[in-house]
């Protein structure tokens, strides 16, 4: 009897015809950052909705450390069975340049499931900062480049990337003051200890609305619904400043196509879930269009972004190792 049971069990695991029944057990989605952060939040929202679609639970696991490279490296080495996934953001495209000793190659170690969202950034300054708009901000920064201080949340953080992009766009280098995370950087900005920074709407929208900090421009193509009075960088004549913190779902290289297709379909469904759309909106972002939540679009985005950031980071000469 026991033998029969074992046989049946074995058959269930090995003899399943090519992933037709995938998924048969809970899936783990790794977030390479601490619980509670913006990426974790995005992941939990998407994972919850996807698991409804897949009929299996998606367990979110936080594997933080080294700018997201530890968690990503872990998934790169996981079994390609479709039961270990990774949610990562723009850091996947900057890691190969920032980390010169990276243990995996983002372009070779993963299958791509699809893009999820692109969180916009806003250039903000301390309350009462002199310049009135984006143009005069640039002029002011250029004229006072020895005096002004730009805050960022540490190497590889969104605010660090935005700062490098900003400085290369206006062709002026100013003193950067790194912090350990966005929280302390924003606190010092509100307290007037530093002059300006640039961070995700997730962290800044409320403070802007309350007048605790001053907003100059968004890095989006269109003005944001949440901040209709803030112009885009492009409106002010800085086309190079258009970018967002994009998120995508990955699986280890070699994960069967059937599984990837199912995951992609589930992701596309999840991104249309009103609950997900609503929560994303309160984060100041929106799901990507359906044609972006596909493996092909994801791969193209990653390639383009790696190419885009390489010269910017190398010019700034700031590496994470």
């Amino acid at each position: 009897m026991r033998k029969l049971f074992a046989l049946a069990l074995g058959a269930a695991i090995f003899a399943t015809p090519a992933f037709a029944q995938y998924p048969e057990r809970a899936i783990t989605m790794v977030v390479p950052f601490a619980a509670g952060g913006p990426t974790d939040t995005v992941t939990r929202l998407v994972a919850e909705s996807m698991s409804k679609e897949l009929g299996q639970q998606i367990v979110v696991e936080n594997v933080g450390g080294a700018g997201g490279t530890l968690g990503a490296g872990k998934v790169a080495q996981a079994a390609p069975d479709g039961y270990t996934l990774l949610m990562h953001h723009i850091g996947m495209s900057t890691a190969p340049t920032l980390y010169r000793k990276l243990a995996f190659n983002p372009l070779e170690a993963f299958e791509y499931v699809g893009l999820v969202t692109e969180v916009p950034m806003v250039i903000v300054a301390k309350p009462g900062f002199e310049p009135a708009d984006m143009k005069s901000l640039v002029e002011y920064v250029k004229a006072n480049k020895d005096k002004v201080n730009y805050a960022n949340a540490g190497i590889g953080a969104a605010s660090h990337l935005c700062g490098m992009l900003f400085m290369s766009a206006i062709d002026t280098r100013v003193t950067t003051v790194p912090y350990k995370g966005t929280g302390p950087a924003l606190t010092d900005l509100m307290g007037g200890q530093v002059d300006f920074m640039c961070d995700q709407t997730t962290n800044t929208t409320n403070q802007i609305k309350e007048g605790k900090i001053k907003a100059y421009a968004t890095t989006t193509a269109k003005r944001l619904d949440a901040l209709p009075d803030v112009p885009t960088a492009e409106e002010s004549g800085y086309n190079d400043l258009t970018f967002g913190i994009w998120h995508g779902v990955y699986a280890p290289k070699g994960t069967p196509k059937e599984a990837i297709d199912k995951l992609s379909a589930a992701l596309q469904k999840a991104l249309k879930d009103p609950n997900v759309i609503e929560r994303f909106a309160s984060l100041g972002t929106a799901p990507v269009a359906e044609d972006q939540a596909t493996p092909a679009a994801h791969e193209a985005k990653l390639k383009a972004e790696i190419a885009r950031w390489k010269p910017v980071i190398e010019a700034a000469g700031e590496f994470a190792d």
Binding site: P184, M190, N206, Q207
Partner: peptide, 27 residues
């Protein structure tokens, strides 16, 4: 009052608020 976490536990709280659809802050 500021929407800024003072420690890791507060960061978790803010994450929880966002998931609940509340963006923490002065408002």
């Amino acid at each position: 009052t500021l929407g800024i976490p003072a420690n890791p536990v507060m960061a978790l709280m803010i994450g929880a608020m966002i998931i609940q659809g509340i963006v923490p802050g002065p408002n």
